[in-house]
Write a protein that binds this DNA or RNA. Structure first.
Lengths: 342, 342
DNA sequence: ATAGCCTTTCAAAGCGCTTTCAAATTCGTT
DNA sequence: AACGAATTTGAAAGCGCTTTGAAAGGCTAT
């Protein structure tokens, strides 16, 4: 059932039927109702490709998933972000498209995705500290919004980010107030901008307190449970182990907790832990009282905001870039406590 | 840059250029090279909507995410499944599209997605024991593959599934061999087929051993960490607590472990735990020696297989449905041990 | 040179929609 | 009754591609 057939059935022109369906004003109420009834009855759905070809809009938003960051697609944080975005998209009639590409071909993928008209805009995930994709997308003139920022990119672009630096600075300061001096950082991949900023916050707090950072207490990698476990084990085996640990994700924090428990250390008493909590829907930080003291910021909300911003940009491509900096809360849980003397 | 412009630049007809680009044989090698060079130089990408309109194929696979199963999109298991599928899609030139819909409109969404030509095929996720979507899709004549099965649907359809029943039956038998008699089941949502099958396996093993199932030891819900924790707490508070627990997911198992550790119980010694392990990439079951004894099956692989099967179906829509039943391994970890005499 | 056969190229129709511009109809006024 | 304005409908072009059916060009064999 296509437009032609439907209009023949109704004894109307394609023009009128098209208008009636798309809510144009120059159609009489009577015909509109007639058309709508017939469309429903015959289960007519306009072909989106034909529509897209005629209008020049795909009504699809693209997300590109590079293969190399193996865990990206699979990353639970990504999942919640996308869930938030998806909800906004569907409210505005957009679909969401994923393209999975080898990262050597990533540039080509972005170029292709937009130029071939498959999408109207793009969300850029997991920016590095100096992310070339941003230059590429601006140059291609694709409407896009970055989830996060890229510190070393100077030209303006739209982004939604959490104040990662301040969050980790505050968390570190809090641990310092509790008397801790040996504070470890188990970070995300520090090639990624958010991790670099968290590190900067951590370092800033240490410096302010006049404490020299110890490389043995700092590490960053893909945020898996295993990594949190491994690093904690390694650090606890040091001659001068940390008395507090700052962790970049709930997932890694689970590994940290496992390592601590294996050694009979109790969080909050024997050692303090603060984690970043993205408010993942299936991995909440406890029920009533939070398990972990945490810097908290909903990644799902970030997804919603980024989606809104992108849709706005698509509608008005020539507005100057917009930004949204979300502050993370520092919430008190059971995993922190004053430094125990010796 | 479109086909018309490119062909004018080359002084060729659109026909010839199109053929050269798409690798048709009736083009001389010389012109083909010339066309390819020009396409590259001018960065030409055929418009996919126009192409789709002309060929009738979208080169897109659809996944529908109902909103009600709030965690579905966000579900880490879903993420790994999709990662596997995405990889296969991209190898075959397909993109992947997600539609996020309220589940009251799910029927309409499927209908729409295919009829309006947005996708060439669909993957059905998380089937219920009696899933109406399967009837709908067959009736619409959409190529589709189900991840999992729907026990109460009798008509044939294509699926990729894990032998959930056997996996949980074996796991239960193993616990019985170790001497356990009070075995708890912390399951997924039992309206979903995979969870129902796991329960069936569990029950079959108990029955064979002549043990009457105890409703107080059985529960199913969304597989979150919190749920695993809550249920374990509740069950341990019983007059006659379980000595072994069977868990449907690593995520819930983490909650189980947390509950046990809070009470000072050690897995493998004081209480036995077996979990299902989907081999999530960022949540592995330990490094060398598995933490949990587990029924293991890669959900990522399932995604790959389902994608292959679907692409096959799209190519040959009239072949009879195919099936793939993956067996889960029972791997021995540190979380199980013989029943301790009370 | 010519016929016949490949090989290579092209013009034009068609995919299903939107949208411009023109035409037909209706209505309120005089 | 007639006119202009406002409302409602329609014919046809166009979006960028593929593909059919025809034509042109290049061979070989006579």
């Amino acid at each position: 059932m296509n437009l032609k057939e439907l209009s023949e059935i109704l004894g109307l022109s394609q023009t009128t039927v098209s208008r009636a369906i798309n809510g144009y004003p120059e159609v009489s109420e009577a015909t509109r109702r007639r058309v709508e009834a017939a469309a429903l009855e015959h289960n007519y759905r306009p072909n989106s490709r034909a529509k897209g070809l005629a209008t020049g809009r795909a009504m699809v938003i693209g997300h590109v998933i590079p293969t190399s960051s193996q865990h990206e697609l699979v990353n639970p944080i990504f999942g919640d972000f996308v869930a938030g975005a998806a909800q906004v998209y569907s409210q505005h009639g957009y679909d969401m498209m994923f393209t999975h590409v080898d990262d050597r071909e990533e540039e080509s993928a972005y170029r292709s995705l937009y130029k071939r008209g498959a999408v109207d805009g793009v969300i850029l995930q997991g920016p590095k500290t100096r992310d070339l994709r941003i230059d590429l997308l601006s140059q291609l003139n694709v409407p896009f919004v970055v989830h996060g920022r890229s510190s070393q990119v100077s030209q303006p672009y739209s982004w939604v980010d959490v104040n990662n630096k301040r969050a980790f600075q505050r968390a570190t300061e809090f641990l310092l107030h509790l008397g801790h001096r040996r504070i470890a950082l188990i970070n995300g991949l520090e090639a990624l901008d958010f991790a670099a900023r968290r590190r900067a916050g951590y370092l800033a707090a240490l410096e302010q307190a006049g404490i020299a950072p110890d490389p043995a207490l700092m590490s960053g990698s893909e945020m898996t449970e295993i990594f949190g476990h491994e690093k904690t084990c390694a650090m606890l085996a040091l001659d001068n182990p940390p008395t507090a640990i700052l962790v970049a994700s709930m997932i890694s924090a689970l590994g940290v907790r496992r390592a601590l428990e294996e050694r009979g250390l109790r969080m909050g008493r024997d050692i303090s832990v603060i984690t970043h909590d993205d408010e993942l829907s299936y991995l909440q930080n406890g029920a009533d009282v939070p398990i972990f003291t945490a810097t908290r910021s909903s990644v799902r909300q970030a997804g919603e905001e980024a989606a809104k911003m992108l849709i706005e940009r698509i509608a008005k491509p020539d507005t100057p870039p917009s930004h949204m900096l979300l502050e993370a809360e520092l919430i008190l849980g059971q995993s922190t406590g004053p430094l125990r003397q010796g």
